[in-house]
């Protein structure tokens, strides 16, 4: 489903060239549950940004669903993101003035989904993530766990093939973190591809495939 070949990413910091990613080559199959671990600065977030089409590699190629997306324009990338990729962030990134329901609906609104079609899908998502009672609340009236559930529901609203989670438990206590992880794992059980970036070994250990990154390169790739 995802095929990265020789991905390079360099940043210029001051007059120094920093290699965030060096010759990353990997494949991710549909329905895999993958965690990317590594110390900070190891390039795991950069890799996630490239996988999520938020950033472009300086060299190498990226195939998503048998389509080379390396050379697409910004707007084409936006459309691919909209259809195929769902994001979950450490800081939730909910729009503060919108209610839980409106936040979840946002990707469908941006894609121009018909309101008649949106309503049942929204009701279904709210029920699925246990948010029906909180649908009219704004993010500041929700707990951290609820916020992250809203974010996951939002990521799922366009039924993307891939869910990218960047430190999804980083801002939650242990118990709530476990809860959120089990929500993500349920997506995987239902056939979704879930990629989690984390520096927490306990979280990383839950996945069936574990990628370790050091200095922008894949140091180990364990399965099972």
């Amino acid at each position: 489903m995802i095929r990265l070949t020789g991905i390079e990413r360099t940043f210029t910091v001051g007059d120094e060239q920093v290699h965030a990613l060096r010759a990353v080559t990997m494949q991710i199959a549909r329905g895999e549950y993958l965690s990317i671990m590594g110390p900070s600065g190891s390039g795991k977030s950069t890799l996630l940004n490239i996988l999520g089409l938020l950033d472009r590699p300086n060299a190498g190629s990226y195939e998503l669903d048998q389509r080379d997306v390396t050379g697409l324009s910004d707007d084409e990338l936006a459309r691919v993101r909209r259809e195929k990729i769902g994001f979950v962030f450490q800081f939730f990134h909910l729009v503060p003035r919108l209610t839980a329901a409106e936040n979840i609906e946002l990707p469908m609104v941006l894609s121009g989904v018909d309101p008649a079609e949106r309503a049942p899908r929204l009701g279904q998502l709210l029920a699925e993530y246990g948010l029906t009672e909180r649908s009219g609340h704004r993010p500041d009236q929700l707990s951290g766990g609820q916020c992250q559930r809203v974010a996951i529901a939002r990521a799922m609203s366009m039924r993307p093939g891939v869910i990218l989670a960047d430190e999804p438990t980083g801002n939650l206590d242990r118990h709530t973190g476990q809860e959120v992880m089990s929500v993500l794992e349920r997506l995987h059980e239902n056939g979704g591809t879930v990629i989690v970036v984390t520096h927490d070994p306990e979280i990383g250990a839950r996945s069936q495939r574990r990628l370790r990154m050091i200095d922008g390169a894949v140091a180990s790739d364990e399965k099972g």
Binding site: G52, L54, D74, D75, A78, R79, R81, R82, E83, F87, H93, V95, L106, P107, L110, S111, R154, M158
Partner: peptide, 16 residues
Amino acid sequence: KREIGLLKALGATGRQ
């Protein structure tokens, strides 16, 4: 800024 970044991540085009 964060909201705009988020909208982009969710698939909003520059035009939108």
